[in-house]
Amino acid sequence: MSAFEGEALSCARGGRVVFSRLDFRVRGGEALVLVGPNGSGKSSLLRLMAGLSAAASGRLRWNGEAVAADPTAHRRRLHYVGHLDAVKPALDAREILLFTARLRAGGGKARAAVSAALETMGIAHLGDVPTRYFSAGQRRRLALARLFVAPAPLWLLDEPRTALDAEAVARLDNAIAAHRHGGGLVVAAMHGGPYPPEATVVDLAAFSSPLQ
């Protein structure tokens, strides 16, 4: 069973300590929810987990092995959905997902995977529509659909419910539950519940530096 853990993590942005000495641990099937006021470092922690930025101190481990030892393997096992949807207005939904599918999983069943992913997020009818006509919620659904085109055990989601309607939130919750059921790990920054069932909640305010 996979396990992802962080040990004594500290993060500094712009010369200011955002959080320090933070520990976390997620195992296969578990969910970790990051909460805290604006600026408490939820996004910073997620970017750090993804390897987009480096921690000021501390270590990340996957199954007991340092993530820094093999960054490529780490990238291969994670999906990161940040604040930005990475949606190109000139392309249609299917083309955008096909690129991700082929880049990450490579050839073969990419088309079938894309159709299934569009179905999962309830935008199958929008597959051939240029995304410049998409609403904010539809763009968000498309960004989340990337999670399904190439399987990866670790999902890092930054406020995934932003701009989603109730129906899409239900779809996302179901997808997270299915991912966990299949042994996947989920780390999500969230503002307000309901949180995924039996999730571990980490309040980043508790790790903010006392010196600031």
């Binding site: 990238r75 291969r76 990161y80 930005l84 990475a86 880049l103 990337r146």
Partner: peptide, 15 residues
């Protein structure tokens, strides 16, 4: 960079 595609490229298995 502005629309977030660069982050996804940086996180793709391709170096």
């Amino acid at each position: 960079y502005e629309d977030g595609s660069l982050e996804l490229l940086a996180l793709a298995p391709l170096p």
